[in-house]
Write a protein that binds this DNA or RNA. Structure first.
Length: 212
DNA sequence: CAACCGATCACCT
DNA sequence: GGTGATCGGTTGC
């Protein structure tokens, strides 16, 4: 029961985004809805974005602090949720000590609890015998992940994910990641070659093609 | 299947 | 006024 477990502590997120992105693989993202319903999924794909000192032109923090990206410059372990392409949210977690703006983008989860509700949030009707390829469409990709878990900028941006009472957090259920694949990041036009995308090798719930 | 395109808007220059 | 850390439908090989 991931829900009973503790949120990962702030120290977990205080490290370099590359380390945090790697270490988040296999952890469980938990969302508690207002009515108490639990939605959760195992993180199978993440991307690191570096702070200013990392000289990462693909990162939102690259141009310095603005109103939009202010959360990234705050303490680690907070949600940075932004709206893009006119219709999608993306969720990141701030990393590194306050003042340094690294973060990790959550790109995909393998649905665990509340699968039917997450599918419904995505406008899908799931048959009882839904195939893996269909289950994949629930949360493979940062926009899908947010839609499935009801993550929106208006309510979730800036939320502290390390509080025991938080309705959005990451926890460790003891799962061991068998093998990790590292690739360049997806959907960016600058720093396209940096190997900062991490995924669980062979996992079907990763966005794009099956890796490893 | 890969490639392309349209949707649609917050944000920054 | 241009540009996206995207998605899903359509087109065409």
């Amino acid at each position: 029961m991931p829900s009973r477990l503790q949120p990962l502590p702030r120290k977990f997120f205080e490290r370099h985004p590359r380390i945090v992105a790697r270490q988040l693989l296999g952890k469980v993202l938990v969302r508690r809805l207002p009515d108490g319903t639990l939605l959760s999924g195992r993180l199978v794909e993440t991307e690191a974005y570096l702070g200013r000192e990392g000289n990462d032109p693909a990162a939102h923090a690259y141009g310095g602090q603005t109103q939009r990206n202010a959360v990234l410059f705050g303490p680690p372990g907070h949600a940075y949720v932004y709206f893009t392409y006119g219709m999608h949210y993306c969720m990141n977690i701030s990393c590194q000590p306050e003042g340094r703006a690294g973060c990790v983008l959550l790109r995909a989860v393998q649905p665990l609890e509340g699968v039917d509700i997450m599918a419904a949030n995505r406008g899908m009707k799931l048959a009882a015998d839904a195939s893996p390829s269909r289950l994949r469409l629930i949360a493979a990709g940062p926009g899908r992940l947010c839609q499935a878990l009801c993550i929106v900028r208006e309510l979730d941006n800036g939320k502290d994910l390390t509080q025991i009472k938080s309705d959005l957090f990451v926890t460790d259920d003891g799962y061991k990641v068998p093998r990790v694949i590292v690739t360049p990041r997806v959907g960016i036009t600058r720093a396209v070659d940096l190997p900062l995308r991490f995924a669980i090798a062979g996992n079907r719930f990763v966005s794009g093609k099956l890796l490893g």
